[in-house]
């Protein structure tokens, strides 16, 4: 038994099965990420004023590391161009070039994930403190002389834990001041950026890290980027399979193998495409 059009195009549609399949899958992915982006917009436009305490914003802006995000965007764009070049290399019958381009693609994918996890970790140890007098500060936390949350998601502090463990004061390396747009304010002679500030537990009204529980912004940020990261991981594993164990097919059925790379590439470009929107939306706006 042979299933028709597994790699030859069906005459009336002009497509082989897998290409129909991947486009259908991508259509459903559009709806998945579309729903998440819709949720982002809805939560943002309905956020009440003063909800982000630092500068009385409704929605925090400029909290993510823009240079790192920009670099990661470049990494993902690079992997996108290498995967399409790898496909072109197969079309030109150049298997060696195909393989090293795929290796670059997969390395880019893991670089992206590595950088992303570095960013995640930074957020886990970054805190916002709201004082009982209404003021608020953000920065990296130190409790009992230790930085919490270093590669450890479970080690999170909040007011309840401070009180339960009878911690009398915390230290926080204060972030540079920001204006209403989230831009860093350049104040003349302000030399004590990242200066440590000591805060007594009794003065604290709220303490929370940059994690989903603290603000819907982080909830959306972590959910969309984590889901995107899972797509990157899944795509990277499949592409790595095609580059090495799956490449045996090049000898037996080069046409189907080239199609596989095309289909894998389509998925990979889609993942890149999501990031192209994700980057400005969560980092810059």
């Amino acid at each position: 038994m042979e299933i028709p059009y597994t790699y030859k195009a069906r005459p009336d549609t002009g497509l082989y099965n897998a290409k129909v399949g991947i486009w259908l899958f991508l259509a459903s992915e559009i709806m998945l990420f579309g729903a998440l982006f819709s949720a982002y917009i809805l939560l943002r436009v309905s956020a009440p004023d003063g909800f982000w305490p630092d500068v009385a914003l409704a929605w925090p802006r400029g909290l993510l590391n823009i240079p790192i995000g920009t670099f990661n965007t470049a990494v993902l764009i690079t992997s996108s161009v290498t995967v399409v070049l790898a496909w072109a290399a197969l079309k030109m019958n150049n298997f060696a070039r195909f393989r090293w381009l795929m290796v670059v693609t997969v390395l880019c994918a893991f670089a992206f994930l590595g950088i992303k996890s570095f960013e995640y970790n930074d957020k886990f140890s970054h805190y916002v403190v709201r004082l009982k007098d209404g003021k608020a500060v953000t920065g990296h936390l130190e409790v009992n002389g230790k930085h919490p949350g270093f590669w450890n998601f479970a080690d999170q502090w909040n007011l309840g834990r401070l009180e339960a463990e009878k911690v009398e004061h915390i230290e926080i390396a204060v972030d540079p001041a920001r204006d209403i747009h989230g831009h860093v304010k350049h104040v003349e002679g302000a030399s004590h950026d990242h200066a440590k500030q000591k805060i007594a537990t009794s003065d604290i009204a709220f303490l929370g890290s940059y994690t989903p529980a603290t603000h819907p912004f982080f909830a959306v940020y972590f959910l969309i980027t984590a889901l995107h990261g899972l797509h990157v991981l899944g795509g990277a594993l499949v592409l790595a399979y095609f580059a090495f164990p799956g490449a045996k097919m090049w000898k037996t059925n080069p046409e189907q193998f080239t199609n596989r790379i095309e289909v894998g590439g389509l998925f990979w470009h889609f993942v890149d495409l999501v990031w192209i929107f994700l980057f400005p939306v969560v980092y810059l706006l």
Partner: peptide, 19 residues
């Protein structure tokens, strides 16, 4: 091919409707 376009148009319409 035309098929892919029509598929993407459908999901674009529904995405717009959803949002």
């Amino acid at each position: 091919k035309k098929l892919v376009y029509s598929l993407l148009v459908i999901s674009a319409i529904f995405f717009t409707g959803l949002m």
